[in-house]
Design a protein around this nucleic acid. Structure first.
Lengths: 346, 346
DNA sequence: TTTGTGGTTTTGAACGTTCAAAATCGCGAG
DNA sequence: CTCGCGATTTTGAACGTTCAAAACCACAAA
């Protein structure tokens, strides 16, 4: 006398099987999982035991279909220059996955199709297929069309990088200007009075802010600033050459701040080519991003470390606020950076 | 006289609405999408038009629930040393997402929970929740417990890195030994007869293979090999020191191959500290991974580039073969690397 | 005893899709 | 004119879960 299958064909336990084994109804099992306070303590324990014994986990598809909650966050990978990829993407993604995991969410990765210029198409697809509760965007520009698009669609989102004034302020970002200002103060404390700055790709807001922070702080402290002209990205040797020219000039800087660790490499080269040394007694140099590179340079490079975990946590929190329809904050989250001092400026 | 909602509350069109608008049944719309050959040409066109007009896309949850296919690939991020992260993870992920996208699959990212030593727990969770059709694993070791685990569970998987002989051979990898052998040939062609090798973390199979390839090829060509002892990872300065000792010795190498671009940096430093120059006329140096760093070094660093897109494509293909239950190949996929020659060895 | 009442549990329906099977159509053969 | 058959389309059910509402239960108040 068969009374129905004890286990579904796929091998994984279903809620029905748990219910039967625990002598309760489907819904009670569901409640034990989603609203334990509604279940009598004794029942809860019994159900929990069976769940553990059978290794039951709700089928995510069924759950999503019925409840609408996807429990998944989409991450739209920025399409960056393959010659100069954003050096912190790997670290940021790790932090994002962890932050999402702490809220029981997974991260779905996607990118615009190859050769497809319009990133909004990829967003539309993902949203139309109802695969995510919201989106995280990175490398966001001040008036980013992606932000405009998701805002128009009304999808919950959070941006790594500030959004424009007319757009929802669901972002987290570091204080780029304060970061380079801090670098300037650090160098000033070490006695440097004339400081150079090497940037790149200054059309990017974070790069522009770093330069601006440098200029503001040198001005405030009454230091002599020697910002280099913007380098030509197609001729990477050019920036090293410009640094050399500055070092040969009448009023040689004793320190250089830069907008990235790779740019600091150019400064290292220029300093050495001029017969000078990097570090204490010679020319101080600082980088940005604190990439693994820093520890391998000689001397090790002082650099600005980004609080990636805090950024990711902030983004996930802001995103889930929107998903849950709670109070939606209307201000961005600006986080401080940390200056990791090493021998290049110590 | 209402005849039912024309649009569901969530705003997204459903298959039912498409069917109604096109004057056909649900199933015909489904067939138009999943088995167009079963639909009359004229009908297909009409349905397609409506689909386009309404911007319809099937709800992925509903689809998964009914059909069992998740259309999603899980990527288990390796937990690597934060001080020395695998430098190609970002690039590999990009390639993986693209390769998956070409098969209509998405990539779900996950990692073992923070502080959780056992990576199999994360796998179990993902599989129990039936969120993915299969897994891609990276940084796979020869007898990786993760492989043993997924093999035991019978989940489709594909590994970046060779699996052990007793395990299913669903992997793709580069020919690490052939890569360094190629480097040796390249240096030999340039006239170098005594070549040093700097490795690190040689307990990792790919690092060991690079060293082995170096030794094999120098031996085959009758060159003089000067492999350095394994450096102490806790004292990064030590490897540069060892290189210097070699350069001061009686039989100075004229070239150095290394196991990574960062290690090449150490060699640069040692060479300069000895008053020598890197590059033509001086000491030739090569790296591994062809990271963005290479182009920023002075001189630019010759390095081994990995065919990440081919690897990702191979992994996805192998994974989907298993998902579709087709013929399962029993041999790994070994791909050649490309030596990008720059001034450091040119 | 009856009537609430709040806490706990169960029941029926629904989410949007695809599977499996049945129904219909068009057309040539008998 | 009827039958059979392949091509095409439709119908009913099911996937596993949660929502909404109803039912049950123990106990206090009337």
């Amino acid at each position: 006398m068969p009374e129905g299958p004890r286990r579904s064909r796929s091998g994984a336990a279903t809620i029905e099987e748990v219910a039967r084994a625990a002598g309760v109804s489907r819904q009670t099992v569901s409640n034990a999982l989603n609203a334990p306070h509604r279940v009598r303590a004794e029942t809860l324990e019994r159900v929990s035991t069976v769940i553990r014994e059978l290794g039951y986990q709700p089928d995510q598809s069924a759950r999503s279909l019925r409840s609408g909650a996807r429990r998944t966050i989409g991450y739209l990978a920025p399409v960056d220059d393959p010659l100069d990829p954003n050096p912190l993407m790997a670290g940021f993604l790790e932090a994002l996955v962890d932050a999402a995991g702490e809220h029981g969410r997974r991260v779905l990765l996607f990118r615009p199709a190859r050769g497809e210029a319009d990133p909004t198409a990829a967003i539309d697809e993902l949203v139309a297929a109802r695969q995510v509760d919201g989106l995280v965007l990175a490398d966001v520009l001040t008036d980013d069309p992606r932000i405009a698009h998701v805002a128009r669609l009304g999808i919950p989102f959070a941006a790594f990088g500030r959004t424009g004034p007319g757009q929802p302020q669901h972002w987290a970002d570091i204080a780029n200007d304060a970061a380079t200002a801090g670098v300037v103060r650090h160098l000033a404390e070490r006695g440097h009075r004339r400081i150079g700055y090497l940037g790149a790709a200054e059309e990017l807001p974070w790069m522009a802010a770093r330069r601006a922070g440098f200029l503001a702080e040198t001005g405030r402290l009454g230091l002599s600033a020697a910002p280099l002209p913007l380098p030509d990205p197609t001729a990477p040797a050019a920036s090293a050459e410009a640094v050399r020219a500055l070092l040969r000039g009448p009023d040689r800087p004793t320190a250089f701040a830069t907008g990235s660790d790779l740019l600091a490499l150019d400064v290292y080269e220029a300093v050495r080519a001029e017969g000078l040394a990097v570090g204490p007694g010679g020319v101080a140099v600082t980088g940005f991003y604190d990439s693994p590179l820093c520890r391998h340079l000689h001397p090790p490079l002082t650099s600005v470390r980004l609080p990636l975990r805090a950024i990711a946590a902030g983004l996930v929190a802001r995103l889930l606020d929107q998903v849950h329809g709670g109070a939606v904050p209307t201000a961005g989250l600006e986080l401080p950076t940390e200056l990791v001092v090493r021998a290049s400026s110590g």
